[in-house]
Each structure stands twice: as structure tokens, then as C-alpha cells.
Amino acid sequence: MKIKATLGALLLTPALLAAPVHSAQAAEYQIDTQGMHAAIQFKIKHLGYSWLNGRFEKFSGNYSYDSSKPGQSKVQVTIDTTSLNSNHAERDKHLRSKDFLNVSKYPQAKFVSTNVQAKGDKLTITGDFTLNGVTKPLTIDAHKIGEGKDPWGGYRSGFSGTTSFKMADYGITYDLGPASTEVFLTLDIEGVRK
């Protein structure tokens, strides 16, 4: 009996060694811009009296996320800066010019995460943000909205994040007054699991 058991174990050992090892990996998500279930909006103070709001109509990106290991998440977003829309054609033309985004030379802005810190559903995402040809570290404070199956047989997750930056840090020095030096971004992102 012992001989048969030992022989069986020896026969199974090569098969076990050859079997693929599956480790848990974060799921990959594509940001749902096709269905417009995502938005990147900006605002800046106007003369210190009110807020000027706008958005970017075109962007793309992806992220990896595992709810059991959110600190291992990764994010990458590319923004088409030519798609800026502040609901005023003449102003948009100026914002796309060399005074601001210089879209003829730099038609894209990009964020690539380098570190994610997680506490429950709250995430602090640090990464490299490139705008107007300048790359600097940027931190996004984000939180998970939810995740689950969708009605079309897919699986989705969604997050909302905010960040801000000084225009001068990205080589934008056009004087809008002392109250209008900082841009605030809101990113509402829904991704479809690949």
C-alpha cells in the first residue's frame, strides 16, 4: 500500500511542477469614453469673483485595480488638449494658444501614476503629469464610487478624483491676476474591465 502511494506521488510530482501557477492580478480597465461615462473638468477663479468652468471633450486611458490590493493600482490618462471647451469659442481659442496650452506644439497632456496609497475606498494617487511640455509630480485625491456587473455582460468600476496645480509650474505665465493662478481638476472615471 505504501509503495503504491509513494509511486503515485512520484508520478504526480512532474505534473504538478509543470502545472501553471496562477497568481492574483489586478484587473485591467479601459476608461469608458465611448459611452461618455467619464469626464475631466477644470475650473479656475475669474478675477476672484467667480469660477470659470470647462472640460476636455477627448481623452483616453486605462487603469488596473484590485479591491483586495488597491495600493497596487496603476493609472494612465492622456488628454487631447485641443478638445478644451469652456463654452466660449473666442476664449477657447485663446486658451489653446501659446499664452496657455500651446496645443499646436503640445496637443496632449498625460498623467502616469508612480505610487498609490489606499485607505479603504480612499486613494492617494501620485504620478507624473505632463502639460505644455513640462513634466512634474502631481497628486490626485480619489475615492471609489463602486464596482460590479453592468447590464451588457461586462464589469465596471468607478472613481472620482480631484487635484490642482499652479499654471506657472507648467510654464504658463500669462497674467490673469493674483486670484487666478491655480487650476482645479475633477476626474470622474468609469472603467470597463478588459
Score class of each variant (00 low, 15 high):
Asp92Cys: 01
Leu84Pro: 01
Val116Lys: 06
Gln117Met: 14
Asn62Ser: 15
Val75Ala: 05
Phe42Ile: 11
Trp51Val: 05
Ser50Phe: 08
Lys136Asp: 05
Leu131Glu: 01
Tyr49Trp: 14
Asp121Asn: 14
Arg91Met: 11
Pro70Trp: 12
Lys119Phe: 09
Ile140Cys: 02
Tyr63Phe: 14
Asn85His: 09
Ser73Val: 05
Ile40Ser: 11
Ser83Gly: 06
Asn87Cys: 03
Lys45Pro: 11
Thr139Tyr: 13
Asn132His: 04
Pro70Ser: 06
Lys69His: 15
Gly71Pro: 11
Phe129Ile: 05
Gly120Ile: 01
Arg96Glu: 08
Ser64Trp: 05
Gly54His: 01
Phe111Glu: 06
Asp128Gly: 08
Asn85Gln: 03
Leu138Tyr: 07
Thr124Asp: 08
Ser73Lys: 00
Lys69Asp: 15
Asp92Pro: 00
Val77Tyr: 00
Asp121Cys: 09
Lys45Asn: 12
Asn87Thr: 05
Gly54Asn: 00
Phe42Tyr: 15
Leu52Met: 12
Thr135Cys: 00
Lys74Gly: 11
Phe56Lys: 04
Arg55Ile: 10
Ser97Pro: 08
Ala118Gly: 08
Leu52Lys: 06
Ala38Val: 02
Asn62His: 12
Ser60Ile: 05
Asn53Glu: 06
Val116Cys: 03
His88Asn: 15
Glu57Cys: 08
Glu90His: 09
Tyr65Leu: 01
Gln41Lys: 11
Ala142Phe: 11
Asn85Gly: 03
Lys74Gln: 15
Ser50Pro: 08
Gly54Tyr: 02
Ser113Ile: 01
Lys110Ala: 13
Tyr106Asn: 08
Ser97Asp: 04
Ile125Lys: 02
Pro137Asn: 13
Lys119Ile: 10
Lys144Pro: 07
Gln76Thr: 15
Lys43Trp: 05
Phe129Asp: 00
Leu47Tyr: 13
Leu52Trp: 07
Ala109Cys: 07
Tyr106Pro: 02
Tyr49Asp: 01
Val77Phe: 01
His143Gly: 07
Thr78Phe: 02
Lys110His: 14
Thr114Lys: 10
Gly71Tyr: 05
Val103Ser: 09
Thr135Met: 02
Lys136Pro: 07
Phe56Asn: 09
Ala89Arg: 10
Val103Gly: 07
Lys119Gly: 12
Tyr65Asp: 08
Phe129Met: 01
Gln72Ala: 14
Phe59Thr: 13
Thr135Asn: 04
Ser73Arg: 00
Ile145Phe: 07
Tyr63Asp: 00
Val112Cys: 02
Gly54Met: 04
Ser113His: 10
Val116Ala: 02
Ser64Tyr: 10
Glu90Ile: 09
Pro107Thr: 02
Asn85Thr: 05
Gln117Ile: 14
Gln41Ala: 15
His143Gln: 14
Asp99Phe: 11
Pro70Asp: 08
Ser64Ile: 04
Thr78Ala: 11
Asp141Pro: 06
Pro107Met: 09
Asp141His: 14
Val103Asn: 06
Thr130Arg: 01
Val112Tyr: 00
Gly61Arg: 01
Lys119Glu: 15
Leu95Ser: 00
His94Cys: 04
Phe111Ile: 04
Thr81Asn: 00
Asp121Thr: 06
Ser83Ile: 07
Phe42Asp: 13
Leu95Asp: 01
Leu95Pro: 04
Tyr49Val: 04
Arg91Tyr: 05
Ser97Glu: 10
Ser97Val: 10
Leu95Ala: 03
Ile40Asp: 03
Thr130Val: 13
Gln72Arg: 03
Ser68Gln: 15
Ile40Phe: 07
Pro70Gly: 03
Gly61Ile: 01
Leu47Trp: 10
Pro70Ile: 06
Lys93Ile: 05
His94Met: 12
Ile125Ala: 03
